[in-house]
Computed example of a mutant assay.
Amino acid sequence: MPESGHTWRKSFKGEPIEAAHVRLWTAGRVKHPDAPLIANELYIAVLGSGAPVIDMTLSTAGPRIRITAEGPDPLPLLQSHGAGWAIVSGLATHTGLATNQRGLWAQVGTSR
C-alpha cells in the first residue's frame, strides 16, 4: 500500500526577519517538534548565500517529513556545511545538498 502525504511550498524574501515566518509556517503544517528549528537553519544557510528569495518545501510521506530550502544560485561551500549544519544533521535522520546545488534538505521521522 503506498504511503499518502502532502507537499507545501512557499517563497520567502531573503531577509533575516523572514526566519520567524519560516518557523511559524513549518509549525503550522507539520507536527514534528524539531521541524521548525530544522527549517529555520536550512533557511538561514541559504540566506547566507545572499539569495533574494528562498523557496521552502515541506513534504510528508507516511511518518517522514522532508524539509527543503532552495535559492536561485548554487550555494557556496560555507553555506552548505556551516555552523547551522551541525544542528540540522544532529536533529535530522538524513540530510543533503540538492542535486542542483542550490539548496539543502533534511528528513525527519523513520527511515523505512
Rank of each mutant, 00 (worst) to 15 (best):
H94A: 15
L77C: 11
T57H: 04
R66D: 00
T7A: 11
H81D: 05
S4H: 14
G62M: 08
G82S: 10
T57P: 05
D55N: 09
P36F: 05
L47P: 01
H81V: 12
A83N: 09
V53K: 03
G48V: 06
A45I: 05
M56H: 11
G103D: 09
G5S: 10
A106P: 09
G109N: 03
I54Q: 00
I17S: 15
T60A: 00
I65G: 04
G96V: 05
I65R: 00
H6M: 08
L78R: 09
G5Q: 07
K31T: 07
M56N: 09
T60I: 03
W8T: 00
P76D: 06
A61Y: 12
P52R: 08
E18R: 12
E70C: 10
T60G: 00
R29I: 00
F12V: 06
W25S: 01
L97I: 11
E18I: 12
R23Y: 01
Y43K: 12
S49D: 07
L58A: 08
S80K: 09
L77R: 09
A61H: 10
M1L: 14
E18H: 12
P72D: 15
T7S: 08
K13V: 09
T93M: 13
D34N: 13
S11G: 09
S49H: 06
Y43M: 01
A45M: 05
T99V: 05
E41Q: 14
E41L: 10
A45F: 08
T95I: 12
D73M: 06
